[in-house]
Design a protein around this nucleic acid. Sequence first.
DNA 1: AGGCTAGTGACAGTCACTGACAATTGACAA
DNA 2: TTGTCAATTGTCAGTGACTGTCACTAGCCT
Lengths: 210, 210
Amino acid sequence: MNLRERKKQRTRDALLRAALELFATRGYEETTVDDIAAAVDVSQRTFFRYFAGKEETALFVPRLAEAVVIDALRARPPSEPPLEALRRAVLESWDAIHEAVAELVPIELHLRVYRVIESTPALLAVHLRRAAELEERLAGIIAEREGLDVDADPRPRIVVALFGGVIRVTERLWSTGEDLTVEGLRDLTAAYLDQVGPALAGNWRPAQSP
Amino acid sequence: MNLRERKKQRTRDALLRAALELFATRGYEETTVDDIAAAVDVSQRTFFRYFAGKEETALFVPRLAEAVVIDALRARPPSEPPLEALRRAVLESWDAIHEAVAELVPIELHLRVYRVIESTPALLAVHLRRAAELEERLAGIIAEREGLDVDADPRPRIVVALFGGVIRVTERLWSTGEDLTVEGLRDLTAAYLDQVGPALAGNWRPAQSP
DNA sequence: AGGCTAGTGACAGTCACTGACAATTGACAA
DNA sequence: TTGTCAATTGTCAGTGACTGTCACTAGCCT
């Protein structure tokens, strides 16, 4: 990598960090693109040459995580049933995600930004849309594993939708709770996934007051 | 309703219709707020006094539908198991939705706008966020029916997440398919909901090639 | 060293949205 | 009916995200 490319990389990283730092301390809506550019001492125009928009910086880390999850699912042995493969792929991804993120920004900063994402309507909306896109890709992988056609058989999309729903519920709960550690999220996710069976059992009431 | 209020109502309706008409023909991003205001011959400022933003007009009808679904779920006999209550509430809502919408805009226009929503990233994002908010309310109702605490018991949120996931999958498929009738959506939804059980059965492969 | 080109800054313009103020118009009492 | 009050609207100015253009500078390559 020559000087030119190193400089570009440095500017990009600096912009990303400055943006996340500002979002985490001041809030997303309260931070202007000019603020971010000024913090790195480049023009606003340059910011837009590196990122498609303000959103992209805020959701940069979650996007990394998505790529890791996809790889993890691809690496699962085809003998595993779909839901089990999804479960293990996600639960075992977090270490890899942790690493990949740490090279870019401090984990602690990312966790603070994550709360900002969940509590900022505009960001949450885009985050959810990206999650939907991820689900579509996961459904494709599941279908492939099982030798099915995604458009002909509803089951791949349904399992993934169920799975994604549970993930999102746990993400929300975790981000509003007090245990903001990666372990906390992993345990919560595992616990909720274990509840899928019971939740689908027809009637709950006999079980709660036997 | 006196003259003043009637006039307001007329302006509001005209703005909504003009907006949807423009979105459906020209596209969402290609329509400016000035276009909408000009079509009704009011100032841009007036548009913003009636709607919080461009989005709100595009998502106005889906918001109506949400309210209907909530009412329908509340009306379900408490003896029904949660998933069954959700299923019936949604399937039986469409007639009521149909009626409520028809009073506001032609159904055919709404269907065209619906495709625009699904195919416009910015709109889809907000639509999904609203869906998440709806799910939270539905989970609350389910918990209440079952006499549970939403924050203590994961099951209400999980069933609703599963259910919502399936709904969203069918909405997407329907909006990209060719049978753009309300019956088409209802049948598709019913069929997909029937697949939830099979989709969760551990291994699919024995079933597909017996 | 000197030409080539990627990367940048400065500037102007569009579009969504907001605040402030003045003009208009319906409501209602005298 | 008329005058007063309050609600509604238009106009104007401003902010913030984003885009196109163009000249300029800095690293690259021979």
